[in-house]
Structure formats: structure tokens, C-alpha cells
Design a binder for these strands. Structure first.
Lengths: 199, 199
DNA sequence: TTCTCTTGACAGAACGTTCAATCGAGAGTA
DNA sequence: TACTCTCGATTGAACGTTCTGTCAAGAGAA
């Protein structure tokens, strides 16, 4: 074993696992210490002033920042047949680690308004803002029919949510065996046919 | 004051409020007793064997059973232009009380698989199953183009979710001021244009 | 009296946090 | 080399508080 000396990171990792699995109240200083393989919970207080501060650091260090839509201007002219599946695949690409993060943040956001604010602004809010701008542009250049893009942006992201929720949190929802890719293609085709400029 | 004698119900009400606001771990027997205006927390143990049992009774007595789609067969022949907005409005009709229930159930479902199962089967699962049957039927009678109804059912319900989430849990999402009714009409029209048989 | 309901006091465990003591590696001195 | 001193890191024990759950005694109605 490589006797990792980065105690701080070791504690942060363990705290993340515990908070994600049991929530802020459910995870205890003792259980975090055990998960971090510390001999004593007291050591945590050498690196962090208290449980609350530890939690905030975990949150700050783990909240995923959406960079898929960072270089917005490059993407504005992509045809929707290409861009929407790309966004969808980025969504479904959440893996094990991000599922834990999402569980932690969503569960805690339901109880703490500041966490809710932080979550929305760092994730869904950005994607929605980008989508609104993108769809607006696509309407202007005539590739989509005129409509309220605040609504269609929500609608497109929303279409993917039940599939994602089934995969990550509620396996019962996924029992009918629909694959991510099938759902994505179906959703994109409904969305685009529904906003086609002609007809 | 009417000196309500239904102590059991009084405790259940208070427990619901506390669990919804603070979660299972965050709510304490003492805080529930205070919310129920009991002189002593001990009284709770006269009516319920322990905190866990109290929680399960709260869940059982409050989980909303979706009855909007109970009489399925009547609705199967309604045209989608009529049925889909009806389902949407039922969704958005969640009011204050149900928001609390939803917060309680979702937050707890993220940690307890049994609660997740219960939640999905009693709510979203039923609506999805009904929608699949309905859409299948509409495809058969030629009012919608052939497609995978597992996917379109998810998609339609999903389209409404960001709006609902903004209203109930994440006010930041709702800052652009889109109204429920506008979003519903927009979503239905995208969905139906996207699944129109002709094209 | 007897039964249902209610009470304050209490036990035992677990909680977050503090504390004094200790360890080991490195610097300074002889 | 050997001895001392320093200091960040670590430890086990203990603190005060809060938690769930128990108990014996009492109040009020039948």
C-alpha cells in the first residue's frame, strides 16, 4: 500500500462517499473517519474546523461544472440534428461517480435553499440558458418554427430526465428496458418534427 | 381552541410536517412532539412503537395515489389534443401540501430503495404505464405515427418536469417567468406535431 | 375499581467537539 | 556521531449535549 500522505484529500474523499450515501445528518464524523481509515475521528478537526465546513468543502470540490456548453458561440450554428443528440449523450454520460454527486446535491438541495441555488446555477441553469440562446438562434435563421424557446428548452431537457432518473435513482422506472440511445433518438425526432418550420 | 382529541392524527400531522421539512434523521421525536403541542415526547410511544414505524405510517398515509388515470378505459379513445393537456394540468395542480409530500418522498427515496420503489409504483410508474397504453392505442387507430411508446411516454411526462421542479423546489429555474399553461400548450404542440401520422 | 391516556423523570447510547499527551522527522549544536 | 529541541501530525480519552426509548405514577372516565 502506498501510504498516502495526503490526509486532507483522503478525508474529503471519504466524506464525499459518506455524505452522498447517508446525507449530512446521516453521515457521522465517526463514520467518515472510519471510511478514511483514520485511527481517530479527532484528526478530522485538525484539517477542518467542523462538520459543516467539511460538508461545504466536499460540495465545493465535487459539484460538477458543466463545460460541455462552455464554448457556446462555436455551437450556435450547428444544425439541431447534430447538436441535440450531442447534449443528450453528454447527459447520459453521467457515470457512477456523478450519480453519487447528483444524489448528494439533489437530496441536500431539497432541504437547503443555498444548495439548491448553487446546484441550479452550476448545472441545469447553464444548460437551459445555452439551449434557449441556441434555439432562439435556430429560429432566427429559419431552421425551427417561431415559438417560445423558454418552453422548448425546458421540454427538450425534460424529455431526457425520466430516462436518466430511471438509470440513476429509480431502477423501477427503467424496467421496460428502453435504452438510452433509443430514447435519445426518439426524443430528438419528436422534438425536431414538432418544431419543423414548414407545415 | 377545540382541544382536538384525535391525538394519533395530531401526531401524524406534526410528524409529516417535521419529516418533510427536515428529513427522517433531521426530525426528532422531541421536535415532532413540540410541533404536535404535546407536553411530553413520551406520548408518541403510546401510539407508535418507534420513530421508524411513525415514519412509515406518515408515508403510507400521505403518499398520493394517482387517481386521475384510474378509469383508464374511458380515456383511451379521447383525442390526444384533449387528453395530454388534461394530464399536464393534473400534474401542475400539485399544490402546497403535495409539494411537501413530494419533497419528503423524493428526498427519502434517494436514500432508501424501498421508498423509491413505493414512490415510483404509486405515482410516476402508473402514469407512465397508462400513457404507454394510451399512446399505443392512438398509434393503432392511426392518430399518431408508429413509434416506441416507452420512449414517447417518458418524453411527454419529462417535458413537464423542469417546469414543475422550478415551481416546487428550485425557484431559480423559474426565474424567466414562463407560466405553467404556456409551457403545457407549447409542450403538447411540439409533442403532437412531432408524432403526427402524415408528414 | 379498572381501563385508557398522559406525564415528568430517567437510562443508555450516540453525537460533535475539545484536550492533553505523544509520535516521528528534521534542524541545530557539540 | 550523538544529543537536544522544535513542530506538525496523530492519538485515545473525555466533555457536554442530544438522541431514542423506557418507566412508574397519576388523571379522568366508565
Amino acid at each position: 500500500m502506498t501510504e498516502e500522505l495526503d490526509r486532507r484529500g483522503q478525508i474529503l474523499d471519504a466524506a464525499f462517499e459518506e455524505f452522498a450515501a447517508k446525507g449530512f445528518k446521516g453521515a457521522t464524523i465517526k463514520s467518515i473517519a472510519q471510511a478514511a481509515e483514520l485511527q481517530s475521528p479527532a484528526l478530522i478537526y485538525w484539517y477542518f474546523p467542523n462538520k459543516e465546513a467539511l460538508f461545504r468543502e466536499v460540495l465545493g470540490s465535487r459539484i460538477p461544472i458543466v463545460q460541455a456548453v462552455a464554448n457556446s458561440s462555436d455551437l450556435l450554428d450547428l444544425p439541431p440534428e447534430e447538436l441535440l443528440p450531442r447534449i443528450g449523450r453528454a447527459y447520459f454520460a453521467f457515470e457512477q461517480l456523478d450519480a453519487q454527486t447528483l444524489r448528494l446535491v439533489v437530496a441536500e438541495a431539497l432541504r437547503r435553499p443555498e444548495v439548491a441555488e448553487m446546484f441550479v446555477r452550476s448545472g441545469p441553469g447553464r444548460v437551459l440558458d445555452f439551449l434557449k440562446a441556441y434555439l432562439e438562434h435556430q429560429v432566427e435563421i429559419g431552421r425551427l418554427r417561431p415559438h417560445d424557446v423558454r418552453s422548448s428548452a425546458r421540454a427538450f431537457i425534460g424529455m431526457l430526465i425520466p430516462q436518466l432518473a430511471g438509470k440513476m435513482f429509480f431502477p423501477t422506472l427503467a424496467e421496460d428496458g428502453l435504452t438510452d440511445e433509443d430514447h435519445l433518438q426518439n426524443s430528438v425526432s419528436i422534438f425536431l418534427d414538432g418544431l419543423r418550420p414548414d407545415s
